[in-house]
């Protein structure tokens, strides 16, 4: 028996442990559990219009046309909360005021993304914008269900790493 085997550090022993860890991760609570698609407009504290505005903001701040609305919804649902209501009320009012100052009825009614971006640029120094933007960095991109859309494979330990699964399979250089 080698020293590695005695210490349980062989590849086989480590893989055995990894399977147990992987099962735990699946059964445990994830960072954010993606809900079903019935998220739309189901709000309890803020208004449906405010939620729709937050959704549009999220899509305009980090626009990925291949990422469905439900992922953005997961990221902004946190604002449907009494603790966030004042921030949302004031922030969206200021956003709509900025839209009106640029000749629009309100933010949501603007048809083209580039025109909405101009409105967002007018408020990007405000706490509301920065809170929503910073929240999206983890709220959107740390959803495990989003990763495959970008091709990211997440952890690989439970499958033995990439040593036999393409760490050096590039064929176009």
């Amino acid at each position: 028996m080698s020293k590695l085997e005695r210490k349980g550090l062989t590849r086989r022993a480590l893989l055995g442990r990894a399977v147990a860890v992987g099962a735990l991760a699946i059964a445990g609570t994830g960072f954010i559990a993606a809900p079903n698609a019935a998220w739309a407009m189901e709000v309890s504290v803020i208004t449906p219009e405010q939620m729709a505005t937050l959704m549009q903001m999220a899509r305009d701040i980090y626009p990925h046309d291949q990422v469905a609305d439900r992922f953005y919804a997961v990221a902004v649902k946190v604002y449907d909360d009494a603790a966030a209501k004042d921030l949302v009320d004031a922030g969206i009012a200021a956003l709509n005021a900025a839209a009106q100052a640029q000749g629009h009825a309100d933010y949501l009614s603007i048809g083209w993304e580039e025109d909405r971006v101009k409105v967002l640029q007018a408020v990007e120094g405000e706490v509301f914008f920065q809170t929503v933007r910073a929240g999206l960095v983890t709220g959107l991109y740390n959803q495990k269900d989003v990763w495959p859309i970008f091709g990211y494979e997440g952890e690989s330990f439970s499958q033995g790493g990439y040593i036999d699964r393409g760490f050096d399979d590039i064929d176009w250089l």
Partner: peptide, 22 residues
């Protein structure tokens, strides 16, 4: 390759998060 009671790298990709292989 195996050295000092530690296994060879398995190309797992999470060096910054602590090497689970050691």
């Amino acid at each position: 390759s195996e050295y000092d009671e530690r296994p060879a790298c398995q190309q797992t990709g999470f060096c910054f998060q602590g090497c689970k292989w050691g």
